[in-house]
Amino acid sequence: MLTEPQIQRYARQLLLRDLGEKGQESLGAVRVHLALGGSLAGAAAAYLRAGGTEVERASTSPGPWASTPPLVGSPPARRLDVLAAPAAPGRSGVVVGAAAGAHVLWSIAEEGCHACLDLARRDLAPPEVRGPAGIQLGTLLAFLVQRRALGLGSPLEGIQMSREGVLSTVSAPDCIHRPPAVPGSVLAALLHHLAAALPDEGCAVLVGREDGVRLVPMENAQAAHHARDPEAFPRTARTAFSLDPRAWLTVLREADQAGERVLAIAHSHPEGPPGFSDEDRRWAAPDGQPLLPGVAHLVVAFEGGRPRSARWAVWAEGDFRESDCPLPAEHE
């Protein structure tokens, strides 16, 4: 609960629709580490402190912006970093930079994808701001920080300000570092398709966009490959899968035409083992780099004809990272 002095001090903003007592407490629950200088940092710090957020500045010169410290209840528990590009916040914060004649700000939540932020900030130059633009940008920066403190906005959001001061949002890249969200019905259809291929390994492709995923059942071409050339393909379809190159090209073309992309390749292990095997790893990244960048892998392990587990393998920061994919409960 806010104290009486806090209520008096922040009365005006407590009236705002999205703020209120809980919001004010959230603003006071972060400590901003501001590793920037100039009028930009001065304006941002003054604005944030006036709103009730503690700010620690790398440069200690108070300048014309000396501001009253905020009134906070208890020491802030969350840390938010504000840095100049190309540096990046450890967990949550805002990166300020410049690109193509505009000022660019990227804001990331703790749960945001840092690999995506790395892509977004890669081409940014350090900010170059002076004069009135710095004050304007500092206010915008404070606004982004407050949104983070209040838990508003998407996990990774970008905004840019042109030299003329016009604001526009910058869309975040499509995240390829985390498994796609697959609806239960699509997952159930996948399990059905893979079960039908038993005792062979089955395979399928998941295509779609952020807002929708569809299943493309595939034939396991390994049996045909093995029959044709057992020396080049020593393993049978019982222990390996491969995609027919022509069928694969068709999937790619159709996805492209529909404005979709290939999200994942799924295959089964008819009698275990669960998870992404060493063989899978060699197939997916023969030279230590992913053969299909941005495509996730899903391995469904069966046992006695029933699916027992599903594991994602997603390439991020130099390696495949595995995670669990919960199976739909009522699968028969």
Binding site: A11, R12, L14, L15, G20
Partner: peptide
């Protein structure tokens, strides 16, 4: 004003 509604708003939120 504005404390009249500030008090009301906080009391409602609680």
């Amino acid at each position: 004003c504005p404390m009249t509604f500030v008090r009301t708003k906080i009391a409602l939120e609680r």
